[in-house]
Protein backbone atom coordinates (compact mmCIF):
# COMPACT_ATOMS: atom_id res chain seq x y z
CA UNK A 1 0.00 0.00 0.00
CA UNK A 2 0.88 3.65 -0.29
CA UNK A 3 0.43 6.28 2.38
CA UNK A 4 2.01 9.73 2.50
CA UNK A 5 1.33 12.56 4.93
CA UNK A 6 2.29 16.06 3.93
CA UNK A 7 2.24 18.79 6.59
CA UNK A 8 2.15 21.63 4.07
CA UNK A 9 -0.89 20.67 2.03
CA UNK A 10 -0.72 24.02 0.26
CA UNK A 11 2.32 22.69 -1.55
CA UNK A 12 0.15 20.17 -3.41
CA UNK A 13 -2.07 22.98 -4.66
CA UNK A 14 0.97 24.83 -5.94
CA UNK A 15 2.32 21.72 -7.65
CA UNK A 16 -1.03 21.12 -9.35
CA UNK A 17 -1.23 24.77 -10.42
CA UNK A 18 2.14 24.31 -12.06
CA UNK A 19 0.94 21.45 -14.30
CA UNK A 20 -2.79 21.88 -14.86
CA UNK A 21 -2.42 24.14 -17.91
CA UNK A 22 -0.12 21.64 -19.62
CA UNK A 23 -1.53 18.17 -18.96
CA UNK A 24 -5.04 16.83 -18.33
CA UNK A 25 -4.04 13.42 -16.98
CA UNK A 26 -0.94 11.74 -15.66
CA UNK A 27 0.53 8.73 -13.93
CA UNK A 28 1.82 9.59 -10.48
CA UNK A 29 4.42 6.97 -9.67
CA UNK A 30 4.56 6.05 -6.02
CA UNK A 31 7.85 4.43 -5.10
CA UNK A 32 9.92 4.03 -1.93
CA UNK A 33 11.95 7.07 -3.06
CA UNK A 34 8.99 9.37 -3.39
CA UNK A 35 6.10 10.49 -5.50
CA UNK A 36 6.96 11.37 -9.09
CA UNK A 37 5.28 12.24 -12.34
CA UNK A 38 6.49 12.40 -15.89
CA UNK A 39 4.05 13.56 -18.55
CA UNK A 40 4.06 15.29 -21.92
CA UNK A 41 1.58 17.85 -23.19
CA UNK A 42 -0.79 16.62 -25.89
CA UNK A 43 1.41 17.90 -28.71
CA UNK A 44 4.54 16.22 -27.28
CA UNK A 45 6.52 19.43 -27.35
CA UNK A 46 7.04 19.79 -23.61
CA UNK A 47 7.50 17.40 -20.72
CA UNK A 48 6.85 17.79 -17.01
CA UNK A 49 9.00 15.98 -14.48
CA UNK A 50 8.01 16.21 -10.83
CA UNK A 51 9.70 14.68 -7.84
CA UNK A 52 8.47 14.86 -4.26
CA UNK A 53 11.00 12.92 -2.22
CA UNK A 54 9.82 10.61 0.54
CA UNK A 55 11.99 12.49 3.08
CA UNK A 56 9.90 15.61 2.53
CA UNK A 57 6.78 13.93 3.89
CA UNK A 58 6.06 13.72 7.59
CA UNK A 59 5.10 10.08 7.12
CA UNK A 60 5.76 8.01 4.03
CA UNK A 61 5.09 4.37 3.36
CA UNK A 62 5.31 2.68 0.00
CA UNK A 63 5.86 -1.07 -0.17
CA UNK A 64 6.15 -1.37 -3.94
CA UNK A 65 5.98 0.80 -7.05
CA UNK A 66 2.41 1.85 -7.71
CA UNK A 67 1.33 3.82 -10.78
CA UNK A 68 -1.55 6.09 -9.86
CA UNK A 69 -3.28 7.34 -13.01
CA UNK A 70 -5.25 10.50 -12.28
CA UNK A 71 -7.29 13.01 -14.18
CA UNK A 72 -5.57 16.29 -13.32
CA UNK A 73 -8.66 18.46 -13.77
CA UNK A 74 -10.56 16.35 -11.25
CA UNK A 75 -7.57 16.20 -8.94
CA UNK A 76 -7.41 19.99 -8.92
CA UNK A 77 -11.12 20.12 -8.00
CA UNK A 78 -10.54 17.79 -5.04
CA UNK A 79 -7.37 19.38 -3.74
CA UNK A 80 -9.10 22.78 -3.92
CA UNK A 81 -11.34 21.51 -1.13
CA UNK A 82 -8.34 21.43 1.20
CA UNK A 83 -7.44 24.54 3.16
CA UNK A 84 -4.01 25.88 2.25
CA UNK A 85 -2.84 25.19 5.83
CA UNK A 86 -4.32 21.70 5.93
CA UNK A 87 -2.31 18.55 6.46
CA UNK A 88 -2.92 16.22 3.50
CA UNK A 89 -2.64 12.44 3.54
CA UNK A 90 -2.73 10.47 0.28
CA UNK A 91 -3.58 6.76 0.52
CA UNK A 92 -4.14 3.92 -1.91
CA UNK A 93 -3.87 0.16 -2.24
CA UNK A 94 -1.26 -1.63 -4.36
CA UNK A 95 -3.49 -1.84 -7.43
CA UNK A 96 -5.71 1.11 -6.77
CA UNK A 97 -9.17 1.73 -8.21
CA UNK A 98 -9.39 4.73 -5.92
CA UNK A 99 -7.11 7.14 -4.12
CA UNK A 100 -8.10 8.66 -0.79
CA UNK A 101 -7.20 12.20 0.18
CA UNK A 102 -7.52 13.09 3.83
CA UNK A 103 -7.47 16.76 4.83
CA UNK A 104 -6.91 17.74 8.46
CA UNK A 105 -7.13 21.34 9.54
CA UNK A 106 -4.09 22.65 11.38
CA UNK A 107 -6.00 22.90 14.67
CA UNK A 108 -7.38 19.42 14.13
CA UNK A 109 -10.99 20.64 14.33
CA UNK A 110 -12.00 19.56 10.84
CA UNK A 111 -11.27 16.35 9.01
CA UNK A 112 -12.42 15.61 5.45
CA UNK A 113 -11.85 12.65 3.23
CA UNK A 114 -12.26 12.46 -0.51
CA UNK A 115 -12.03 9.41 -2.67
CA UNK A 116 -11.12 9.76 -6.31
CA UNK A 117 -11.27 7.16 -9.05
CA UNK A 118 -8.03 6.26 -10.75
CA UNK A 119 -7.70 5.68 -14.48
CA UNK A 120 -5.44 3.62 -16.68
CA UNK A 121 -3.24 5.94 -18.67
CA UNK A 122 -1.16 4.67 -21.54
CA UNK A 123 1.46 7.35 -21.68
CA UNK A 124 4.80 7.47 -23.37
CA UNK A 125 7.64 7.58 -20.89
CA UNK A 126 10.77 9.24 -22.25
CA UNK A 127 14.32 8.59 -21.15
CA UNK A 128 15.71 11.99 -20.31
CA UNK A 129 19.44 11.51 -19.80
CA UNK A 130 21.36 13.21 -17.02
CA UNK A 131 22.85 16.09 -18.87
CA UNK A 132 25.77 18.40 -18.37
CA UNK A 133 24.41 21.75 -19.49
CA UNK A 134 26.51 24.06 -21.61
CA UNK A 135 24.79 27.06 -20.08
CA UNK A 136 23.07 27.29 -16.72
CA UNK A 137 21.22 30.44 -15.69
CA UNK A 138 19.83 30.88 -12.20
CA UNK A 139 17.58 33.87 -11.71
CA UNK A 140 14.71 35.08 -9.54
CA UNK A 141 11.60 33.15 -10.60
CA UNK A 142 9.39 36.25 -10.43
CA UNK A 143 11.72 38.05 -12.83
CA UNK A 144 11.60 35.15 -15.29
CA UNK A 145 7.81 35.13 -15.05
CA UNK A 146 7.61 38.85 -15.75
CA UNK A 147 10.04 38.52 -18.62
CA UNK A 148 8.12 35.69 -20.31
CA UNK A 149 4.86 37.61 -19.92
CA UNK A 150 6.38 40.77 -21.42
CA UNK A 151 7.92 38.85 -24.31
CA UNK A 152 4.61 37.09 -25.04
CA UNK A 153 2.92 40.48 -25.42
CA UNK A 154 5.20 41.15 -28.40
CA UNK A 155 5.84 37.80 -30.08
CA UNK A 156 5.21 34.03 -30.06
CA UNK A 157 8.79 32.79 -30.00
CA UNK A 158 11.64 33.92 -27.80
CA UNK A 159 15.27 33.51 -28.68
CA UNK A 160 17.36 32.89 -25.59
CA UNK A 161 21.10 33.44 -25.97
CA UNK A 162 23.48 32.93 -23.12
CA UNK A 163 26.99 34.32 -23.06
CA UNK A 164 29.18 34.99 -20.07
CA UNK A 165 27.99 38.61 -20.18
CA UNK A 166 24.41 37.56 -19.54
CA UNK A 167 21.21 36.17 -21.00
CA UNK A 168 19.48 37.89 -23.89
CA UNK A 169 15.80 37.26 -24.53
CA UNK A 170 14.57 38.48 -27.94
CA UNK A 171 11.29 38.30 -29.73
CA UNK A 172 9.68 39.65 -32.89
CA UNK A 173 6.03 40.20 -33.65
CA UNK A 174 3.74 42.20 -35.92
CA UNK A 175 4.22 45.36 -33.90
CA UNK A 176 8.01 45.17 -33.64
CA UNK A 177 10.78 43.61 -31.62
CA UNK A 178 11.84 43.33 -28.00
CA UNK A 179 15.17 42.51 -26.39
CA UNK A 180 15.76 42.07 -22.69
CA UNK A 181 19.22 41.30 -21.35
CA UNK A 182 19.66 40.06 -17.82
CA UNK A 183 23.18 40.40 -16.48
CA UNK A 184 24.75 38.30 -13.76
CA UNK A 185 25.07 40.22 -10.53
CA UNK A 186 26.72 37.86 -8.07
CA UNK A 187 28.80 40.42 -6.19
CA UNK A 188 26.03 42.78 -5.06
CA UNK A 189 24.31 43.00 -1.72
CA UNK A 190 21.38 40.91 -2.90
CA UNK A 191 20.21 37.85 -1.12
CA UNK A 192 21.06 34.64 -2.92
CA UNK A 193 17.56 34.27 -4.37
CA UNK A 194 17.69 37.77 -5.86
CA UNK A 195 20.85 37.13 -7.83
CA UNK A 196 21.25 36.17 -11.44
CA UNK A 197 24.07 33.71 -12.03
CA UNK A 198 25.37 32.47 -15.37
CA UNK A 199 27.66 29.49 -15.81
CA UNK A 200 28.69 28.59 -19.33
CA UNK A 201 31.24 26.46 -21.09
CA UNK A 202 30.29 27.95 -24.46
CA UNK A 203 27.66 30.42 -25.68
CA UNK A 204 24.27 28.88 -26.50
CA UNK A 205 21.34 30.28 -28.43
CA UNK A 206 17.94 28.78 -29.30
CA UNK A 207 14.31 29.71 -29.92
CA UNK A 208 11.36 28.53 -27.81
CA UNK A 209 7.58 28.90 -27.89
CA UNK A 210 6.52 31.53 -25.35
CA UNK A 211 3.15 29.88 -24.82
CA UNK A 212 4.89 26.95 -23.11
CA UNK A 213 7.42 29.02 -21.18
CA UNK A 214 4.55 31.11 -19.85
CA UNK A 215 2.76 27.96 -18.68
CA UNK A 216 5.94 26.84 -16.91
CA UNK A 217 6.02 30.07 -14.91
CA UNK A 218 2.85 28.90 -13.12
CA UNK A 219 5.39 27.10 -10.90
CA UNK A 220 6.76 30.44 -9.65
CA UNK A 221 5.07 30.16 -6.19
CA UNK A 222 7.05 26.95 -5.60
CA UNK A 223 10.47 28.59 -5.57
CA UNK A 224 12.09 32.04 -5.34
CA UNK A 225 14.54 31.04 -8.08
CA UNK A 226 14.38 29.28 -11.41
CA UNK A 227 17.22 27.56 -13.25
CA UNK A 228 17.43 27.35 -17.04
CA UNK A 229 19.72 24.70 -18.51
CA UNK A 230 20.68 24.76 -22.17
CA UNK A 231 22.71 22.59 -24.52
CA UNK A 232 23.03 23.46 -28.22
CA UNK A 233 20.31 21.75 -30.30
CA UNK A 234 18.66 20.10 -27.30
CA UNK A 235 15.52 20.91 -25.29
CA UNK A 236 15.81 23.57 -22.60
CA UNK A 237 15.14 22.56 -19.01
CA UNK A 238 13.37 24.99 -16.70
CA UNK A 239 13.69 23.89 -13.10
CA UNK A 240 11.93 25.04 -9.95
CA UNK A 241 13.38 23.47 -6.82
CA UNK A 242 10.95 22.71 -4.02
CA UNK A 243 12.73 23.28 -0.72
CA UNK A 244 13.53 20.04 1.18
CA UNK A 245 11.26 18.12 -1.17
CA UNK A 246 12.33 17.86 -4.79
CA UNK A 247 11.56 19.74 -7.98
CA UNK A 248 9.25 20.58 -10.83
CA UNK A 249 11.15 20.50 -14.13
CA UNK A 250 9.93 21.30 -17.60
CA UNK A 251 11.63 20.29 -20.83
CA UNK A 252 10.77 22.16 -24.01
CA UNK A 253 11.92 21.28 -27.53
CA UNK A 254 13.49 24.16 -29.43
CA UNK A 255 11.98 25.81 -32.45
CA UNK A 256 14.00 25.65 -35.63
CA UNK A 257 14.07 28.57 -38.01
CA UNK A 258 12.89 27.50 -41.44
Amino acid sequence: MFEARLLQGGLLKKVLDSIKDIITEGNFDCSPNGLSLQAMDSSHVSLIDILLESEGFEHYRCDRNIPMGLNITNLVKMIKCAGSEDIVTIKCEDKPDNVTFLFESKDNDKISDFEMKTMTIDDEHLLVPDQTYTAVVKMPSAEFQRLCRDMAAIGDTVNISVTKEGVRFSTTGDMGTANITVRPNPSGDQKEEERTEVQITEPVSAGFALRYLNSFTKATPLSPTVTLGMVPNLPIVVEYKIADMGHVRYYLAPKIED
Partner: peptide
Protein backbone atom coordinates in the same frame (compact mmCIF):
# COMPACT_ATOMS: atom_id res chain seq x y z
CA UNK B 1 8.97 30.97 -40.04
CA UNK B 2 9.69 28.70 -37.12
CA UNK B 3 9.24 24.96 -37.08
CA UNK B 4 8.42 23.38 -33.74
CA UNK B 5 10.38 20.24 -32.93
CA UNK B 6 8.95 17.44 -30.78
CA UNK B 7 10.58 15.89 -27.73
CA UNK B 8 10.63 12.49 -29.40
CA UNK B 9 13.19 13.99 -31.81
CA UNK B 10 15.57 14.15 -28.84
CA UNK B 11 14.69 11.51 -26.30
CA UNK B 12 14.16 7.76 -26.62
CA UNK B 13 11.04 6.10 -25.34
CA UNK B 14 11.48 4.27 -22.07
Amino acid sequence: RFFQNHLSDYYMQD
